[in-house]
């Protein structure tokens, strides 16, 4: 289960999609990191991820890990955001049987997990079908 400090540390990314753009090669790191995976650059400028994108691939989970069992079947996808950054997240509020590669989606703020009935509630982003 996720404790307070571990959860809290990721809040800028989970709530506000804060990323870091390499000053040297322009590659966007999400989450931000100390060394650029593209060019080993060490200087970054803060950027915010695009909040819409396209489904690149996805699955529908029928056998879930502990804590997600009540949600099955649920879709998880890799989405290429409009700024080119790829992220993994659930795709919700959709008919999983009709989901397709290329679908346009947008980010929404949702509950992701909770540490039992008495622990912290963990929030973050999921994708939902974009209108139109």
């Amino acid at each position: 289960m996720i404790g307070s400090a571990r959860y809290w540390r990721e809040i800028p990314q989970r709530y506000r999609y804060e990323a870091a753009k390499c000053a040297k090669c322009g590659r966007v790191a999400f989450p931000p990191r100390l060394v650029c995976a593209g060019c080993r650059g060490r200087e970054f400028t803060p950027v915010k991820l695009a909040q819409t994108g396209v489904v690149e691939t996805f699955t529908v989970i029928h056998v879930a890990p502990t804590g997600f069992g009540d949600e099955t079947p649920y879709a998880v996808g890799i989405v290429k955001l409009d700024d080119g950054v790829r992220v993994t997240a659930q795709i919700t509020d959709c008919e999983t049987g009709k989901l397709a590669i290329g679908d346009r989606v947008k980010l929404e703020f949702r509950r992701l997990q909770q540490d039992g009935e008495s622990g912290i509630i963990c929030y973050g982003y999921k994708f939902v079908p974009a209108i139109g």
Binding site: T59, I61, V63, V76, Q90, Q113
Partner: peptide
Amino acid sequence: EYECYHGITFPGLYAMM
């Protein structure tokens, strides 16, 4: 933090591949 947090599993990751 950026895959499992979202409820993905190993079969799920390979399913996406």
